[in-house]
Design a protein around this nucleic acid. Sequence first.
DNA 1: CAAATATAATGAACACTGTTTAGTAAATGG
DNA 2: CCATTTACTAAACAGTGTTCATTATATTTG
Lengths: 204, 204
Amino acid sequence: MGLSERKEREKLELKNLILDAARKMLLAHGQDGLSIRKIADEIEYSPATIYLYFADKDAILHELMEMGFGVMNEYMKDSFKEKDPIKRIHSIGHAYILFGLENKDWYELMFNSDKPMKHIEKCCEDWDQGMAMFAFLTQTCKEAIEQLKIENVEDHILALHLWSSVHGLVNLSLTERLEIVQRNSSHELIGKTLDAIIKTIFRK
Amino acid sequence: MGLSERKEREKLELKNLILDAARKMLLAHGQDGLSIRKIADEIEYSPATIYLYFADKDAILHELMEMGFGVMNEYMKDSFKEKDPIKRIHSIGHAYILFGLENKDWYELMFNSDKPMKHIEKCCEDWDQGMAMFAFLTQTCKEAIEQLKIENVEDHILALHLWSSVHGLVNLSLTERLEIVQRNSSHELIGKTLDAIIKTIFRK
DNA sequence: CAAATATAATGAACACTGTTTAGTAAATGG
DNA sequence: CCATTTACTAAACAGTGTTCATTATATTTG
């Protein structure tokens, strides 16, 4: 038996060293500034070594994506606790947008890259954190619909309505399209729009 | 004077030859499959020659982006003619989504890439077609608000609500996030969601 | 303990990418 | 016909992800 406990630990340590360097590079220079060779340089190993711990660059990006959901959870954990479903939706929406605007590179990895989604079989396990979040939103929508006795509205359609709205707002802002059509502070505009959306949906 | 009429025409012809090869490559292999060197190969010129006609790759992508708005206009021209503002919004929304889903590479270039938007001074001229479209949507929203006598809703906020919703839906679909959270036909789901959004906004 | 084996790491190469520059060939103007 | 401008390109630079034969190290076995 060649795999002693210590060996296994060391193997994991180098893997984490790689991921840590990758994370720092992502935050410092974005996805474009993240390269295998630079990671190798940073941790003082050869580029080839990285391929002993990860299949390819996508595998690294994928693990970073999962870390991103951890960061996002920090933004949303208070919102999840909110008792009133409508207030909860409101709070989740604002937290989602704030996370997106303040963490462009995480957001890109989690919601815009199609790299980690290459194989549809695998992705349903891989994106389980995202799925769980959407399931929670759908549940919240169900509660809101029941509480306000809104008719002819399906919970999963409403959830998608909300998700696509905030996702659209975040993307329009991150790619600077909002700055183009509306010169003044887009951050404020986004908040106002989200408030208007929720007000529209839940008006009597 | 060295610049005869014929010379000028020939210069433009090569520029168009480059753009044409670029367009074909974009549609055939996506933005990742589009490279200066491959274009040069295709038109049987050296890569350096391309830099006599375009400052850099971004300049080519930028011109392609403008062509993209032409393609989009084809999808939307009938919607623009619609007299009733609410029906017009509905029609524009569906046309927008259809264009996005059927033209991933154009859409990416026009609405997701931040490459052509590097300089905020220039972009306001460069994205004038996008701005014009948004202005038209805002105008349509104004008409709809007046017709239905909806209170406490600003036209540009409503326009942004609509734009972000369809933009979000298109992006979620193009990056396969919809397929993950909802296994069945996302095309149908998107249509249903858009209908629900508009119904929600304009209900009495 | 030494030899055989298994593991870990790498140097160098491959096939790409965008971009620049110095130098060449051809067309034009005097 | 020669000088000058114009059009073009070969080659190089600095990157990228990835692979593989080879080497160095550590472990296990005879």
